[in-house]
Design a protein around this nucleic acid. Structure first.
Lengths: 117, 117
DNA sequence: GCAGGTACTAGAGAATGTCAAGTAGTGGTC
DNA sequence: GACCACTACTTGACATTCTCTAGTACCTGC
């Protein structure tokens, strides 16, 4: 999303995006935010990302390690657990099926515009 | 979705689906539920659909009329207002952009499985 | 010490499906 | 008429998850 996105559409997806980004490469929280924004989600901020990361950790999908930083506070690195990889695979499948079903409906042609309803 | 779907994924989408179905054809509430289920959303029930329809009506996107039924209680028919058509068009655009952004990330290749995570 | 940037935490709030329970109108059967 | 099944609609409590906001803490440079 190059601009503001609908928060509701992001629900259920944000965690999937996070899992995928971290499956690509272990990252610390702040970096995850930056990578997410670089990926097109410019208006997703820390306030959303950290709680989501925390939830995923609580669910056993992510594990963390604290690494001191020479240029600022310590960084909390996140990476997928085995359960996290499984959740990612399962989530990708669910996402695909979800998209297929939604698009099956939304791609159906509509009748000609009926001005005046 | 032929089976249980993730409720979070449906947020923000259900109203779009409803708008589209009703743009295809005016329908009464119960019929909308049936059409939605026929379209693959078998586990979306009245309890979700009616409040969503009511919200769309309150937002001026749907208007209703009550039609007596010869075989049961009166039926409440819903159809799109001009604002509803506009919301549908806008929502379709937002959905497409959302999907594109998400898929851009999820389709990126992942490194080989690193067992032991 | 202060300012700015990095990095993280956390609670209140909003939105929207889900669940569950219920009401009401017909037709058929007893 | 009463009851049942099916149709058709209403509604409030609840759960989840993002958003917003405010704050803390650690470095570096001035």
């Amino acid at each position: 999303m190059s601009e503001t996105h609908d928060p509701q559409l992001l629900k259920g997806v944000l965690s999937l995006l996070l899992l995928h980004l971290l499956a690509e490469r272990e990252s610390y929280g702040y970096e995850v935010v930056q990578r997410l924004q670089a990926a097109g989600f410019a208006d997703v901020l820390e306030g959303s990302v950290y709680p989501a990361l925390t939830r995923l950790q609580r669910e056993g999908r992510l594990e963390t390690r604290l690494v001191p930083s020479a240029s600022g506070p310590a960084r909390k690195y996140y990476r997928l657990t085995t359960g996290g990889h499984e959740a990612l695979a399962g989530g990708l499948g669910a996402w695909s099926r979800h998209i297929a079903a939604v698009d099956a409906v939304l791609s159906r042609p509509l009748p000609p515009s009926e001005n005046g309803d």
